[in-house]
Design a protein around this nucleic acid. Structure first.
Lengths: 128, 128
DNA sequence: ATCTAAGTGTACGTTAACGTCAACTTGGAG
DNA sequence: CTCCAAGTTGACGTTAACGTACACTTAGAT
């Protein structure tokens, strides 16, 4: 399953419709790690793994999370916890995030209802 | 039903756990209108209507919308459309927002599933 | 009337998340 | 080898959404 497909920075940028600068910025922030092939080259190269990470980051952004929050999630997501304490910390964090997400979904549903109600009021008014 | 309860700026700030500066900023942006009582006083006074608006704004923020987006929604929400064209524009806007919200809910559910799966993996590992 | 906590306008400061520009370096087509 | 589009590293610019500081003004308890 090891597809050794490599992406240049502008390829990734095009795929996700963002700028190269943005990708470099994410790397600068430690949210992305480019695979500089054997340090022979100075240009960045990305694998499918990075592609997926980028997708994760962008989804997080769309959902209103800050880059810092996203970084925290990804870091935990990819950490390999040694002891029991570490694992418990992760579980705890996950539960916290799940609660936040549920709350967010709930709020979105409320907003949705309100917009629907509002929309209906305008449909009802057939004549001025 | 006309409860003539008035709020000072810091009362509202305390209620929503934000700063007075933030409220003034929202007003400056045209998202909030203080009721300066008969222009006798120079201090702001808010009614329950403004309280609700503020709640709307803060919910929007929590959901990742920018103040500009929230302003657009509120403006449309409170506009009294004259003609048919105006009403249609509002319906259209509402439908667009509803789609966005549904998409956002979907993305949140996906994220939720991923976190749950990840969480499960750590629960499964009982012994190191 | 007075005093003080709360409010006001004005203005400059701050942080996140990039945009933009300049002065190079790199790599692949011809 | 030669070129040039694409990439790189700084560094400074920008915008949204407030924070903060200052020099007043206002309101309400005493």
């Amino acid at each position: 399953m090891s597809e050794e497909r490599y992406f240049t920075i502008s390829e990734l940028a095009n795929i996700f419709d963002i700028s190269s600068r943005t990708i470099r910025y994410y790397e600068e922030m430690g949210m992305l790690t480019s695979v500089t092939r054997e340090s022979l080259t100075k240009q960045r190269s990305y694998t499918n793994t990075e592609r997926r990470r980028l997708k994760l980051i962008l989804r997080g952004k769309k959902l209103g999370f800050s880059l810092q929050e996203i970084k925290e999630m990804i870091d935990l997501y990819e950490s390999n916890p040694e002891g029991k304490v570490e694992r418990e910390r992760i579980i705890e964090f996950a539960d916290k995030k799940l609660k936040e997400i549920d709350e967010q979904i709930l709020q979105l549903q409320i907003l949705k209802e309100e917009i629907l109600a509002h929309r209906k009021r305008f449909l009802d008014v057939k004549q001025t």
